[in-house]
Every structure is written in structure tokens, then in C-alpha cells.
Design a protein around this nucleic acid. Structure first.
Lengths: 217, 217
DNA sequence: GTCGCGATGTATCGCGGCGATACATCGTTA
DNA sequence: TAACGATGTATCGCCGCGATACATCGCGAC
């Protein structure tokens, strides 16, 4: 699951670990907590061993004025390989029941712009189904066991029911939108995001920053 | 964190593992997925070793109608010990920053009826604070980086923002309610168990939120 | 003018908890 | 009577988190 997320980000542009984590946090912030280094670095090594990504040396070797006095272990910039891109597409299309789970769904969703419409629909519908079941669970508890639960537990159920209900509706909107043929989600009234009906990466991503500078802001 | 949940449930009544899992699932269903046996049984053993719980022989309190004709290694019924109850109270009152995390908050909340009011308020306010920060994070991303993100990522942010906003309001209601002295959550009127179909911001003034001049509404 | 401190950066370790799996009994249904 | 799903206890591998360590850099405080 991290594999997909990392490959997806590196697909957009090469990055070093720290930056990767930051981007992951914002991109998936709505879905899961920030990824820990204890997961990130081992995963990076695994991906590297598998050949999906490679280290792109970051240290500008051309600087003769500042010799590496302290065995300077600079940042390690990773970039995705051709095999990595293939792998990424494979993972994107692999829609098992796990893809409807909270975290996995979020990751898949986050890369929907690179996913085919039919896969998108399959995922959205599977997710909806899952959340609907969840919602029914809450309803049942509230209907059948309300007297046996204390007020706070009850309140928790209500909140859960409400959240599930809301997500179902959200998914329904998204599904309807996908079916209508409009690729991006609604509300994008003024955005210039219509340029990507294709999933090929030939087009320069909008996210590419003009400067070679890599500092966040 | 499982410790608290398990002790809490066993505090209500003795139970065997399977039942424990089920109750846990419904009681905490709004918060975390069902606890796995791979966590449950080791935890039970740990609690037992620590002396917080003991195995109580499976004997359902004086019934002669169904004789155990095949008395094989039946279910193992656990019950909480006096030390366990103490431990439970300790854990309940231990309100560190972890208690504001999603899962831990939910567990604490689920046992609020056994928690003192001041602790309840501390937890609710800490949680609110945390979710507010989360919410601001979403707002910032949406305000500052909207052009650099694709439509789906953006939509994810919006959904996250909405959920966070909703939880903050929920917490605010709960806090107000606690302060007002009424112990259990509101909505004591039974019968209504449908999700409220309101779509946009509620008309309730509630506590006048410090609207941060944003153009959100 | 240097000192601390927070941000940036790479990396490891322990361990809590998940998912899969195995195995056994029971009641219901085909 | 066989199949099936619910009930029940238990283990194993492994993913990922949180804490921690260590190093460099820029910046403001003193």
C-alpha cells in the first residue's frame, strides 16, 4: 500500500525521503496519518531492490570549492524506473477487496487521475458498498440495542452513522459524476484541469515547479 | 489501548474471547476496525499475567437445563480482578497526547460514563484542538496549493475538511453539554434513528465560532 | 560571534496489532 | 447426512508506528 503511494509520488517527480514523507502527508492527509520513517526507509530500500526505483545522486559533483570534509552523506534522491511505472500501473489496476478499506481506498483515490474510468468506477462502487454495510451496522445497533448501551456509546454510534451516511452520499456524487463522463470531480468550475483525459505521462504535470530549487516553500 | 478497552468491557461483565471481540466491534465500531484475534489473545494473556484479569471457569450461574455432555476445553471466561479495576481507572485518567488520537480517543470516549467530568472535558477539548489543527491543515492546502494538485486529490482534501469540520462541531456540542452539567449526551429523545438529512451548514447558531474571515461560506 | 534551536535529512529498533490460517464444536438446512 | 455458517481458541508472519539517534544548516538571541 505504501508501495503504490510512493511509486505514485515518484512518478510525478524525483524526490528524497523527507520530501516524500511531507508530500505523502498532505496528499493522503485526509486518509491516514503521516507515514513514519520506520516504514518509509525500509520500503524505499525494498522498492530499490525490486528495481522499481533507483537512487539518483543528488550531490552536485562539479563543486571543487567545497570538498567533502565530513563524509557528507547528502540527501538521496529517488526516481522511478520504467519497471516502476509498470508496477505502478499494475498496482493501480489491482482492485481486490482490500482496495475498499479505508487506507487503501484513499491511496487509490489519490491517484485517480492516472486511473482508467472503469477502474475508478469499480473502486468507488466497491467502497460505497462497504461503507453502506458499515452504515447498516450502525443503524442496526441503534435500532436493536439502544436500551442496552450507555449514552456515550450511543452517541458514538450516531456519530459513526452520520459519518458513514455522509461518505455514502459523497461517493454517490462521485460515481454519478464519473458516469456522466466528466473526468474530474465537480466543483472544479474555474480550474484548467480538463487537459487530462489520457493517463499517459507525456504531458508535463502541472505540479512541476519552475525552479530547480527543491525547497518546499 | 486494547488494555483499556478489554478491561472496560470485562468491567461490565465477565466474557470469553469471542464475545469480547464482538462487543468490542460494536462498541468501538465507529472508531476502529474489529480487533483481530492476533491481538486479542496475546493481550488477554498479558493482562492475565499482570493480574488484571483471571480465568473464571465456564459456569453460567446455576442452570441445570443444559448439562455439558461434551465438556471439552470449552470457552474460557475472563473476569476482571480488583487490581484490574484499579488499573482500568488509572488508564482512564491517564490523559496524555495519545488520548487525542483517533483510536485512543474513541476508546476513552466509549467509557465516558465511567469517567469523571473534568477528565471528560480535558479529553474532549484536547481532541477538539487536534481536529481543529487537522482542519486548518486542510484549509491551508486548499487555499495555498489548490492549483498544484489534481482534481481528485483536491476532492479528497475537501472531503477531509468537511469531515474534520463536522467532528469539531460535534465535539463542541458535547463540550457545551458537559459544561451545562447534563451528564449524558443530548438527544435523549428516543425513536429517531435516521441520519439527519441536512445538507449544508446547520442554522443553529451554537457557540459563535470565530469565523476566520475566510471566503469559505 | 557564538550559542542554542528548530527545520531538514537519513536511518534503525522494538513491538503492537492485523490478516491469514488451523482446528474444533454446534445448530440449521438441504 | 452432508454441507454450511456461526461459535470458539490459538499461532505466525509481517507491516507499519513511535521513539530514538545522529548530522547539517540557517537564524535569531544573548
Amino acid at each position: 500500500m505504501l508501495d503504490l503511494a510512493i511509486l505514485g509520488l515518484l512518478h510525478e517527480s524525483p524526490m528524497h525521503g523527507y520530501e516524500l514523507r511531507k508530500q505523502l502527508s498532505t496528499k493522503l492527509g485526509a486518509i491516514r496519518a503521516a507515514i513514519s520513517y520506520g516504514s518509509l526507509y525500509p520500503t524505499l530500500r525494498r522498492l530499490q531492490t525490486a528495481g522499481w526505483i533507483t537512487e539518483a545522486g543528488e550531490t552536485p559533483a562539479g563543486d571543487a570549492d567545497v570538498p567533502p570534509l565530513t563524509s557528507r552523506r547528502g540527501r538521496v534522491v529517488y526516481k522511478i524506473t520504467a519497471e516502476g511505472k509498470e508496477r505502478f500501473q499494475d498496482l493501480l489496476a489491482q482492485v481486490g477487496p482490500e482496495a475498499y478499506e479505508d487506507a487503501a481506498f484513499g491511496v487509490h483515490f489519490a491517484f485517480f487521475s492516472r486511473t482508467d474510468v472503469d477502474i475508478r468506477l469499480r473502486i468507488l462502487e466497491g467502497r460505497r458498498r462497504k461503507v453502506e454495510e458499515r452504515r447498516e451496522g450502525f443503524r442496526e445497533v441503534l435500532a436493536r440495542a439502544a436500551e442496552r448501551l450507555d449514552a456515550y456509546t450511543l452517541e458514538l454510534q450516531r456519530h459513526g452513522l452520520d459519518a458513514a451516511d455522509r461518505e455514502v452520499r459523497w461517493l454517490e456524487e462521485l460515481i454519478a459524476n464519473e458516469r456522466s463522463g466528466r473526468t474530474p470531480p465537480p466543483r472544479g468550475a474555474e480550474g484548467e484541469l480538463r487537459a487530462s483525459p489520457r493517463t499517459t505521462d507525456s504531458a508535463r504535470p502541472l505540479t512541476a515547479r519552475p525552479g530547480p530549487d527543491d525547497s518546499a516553500e
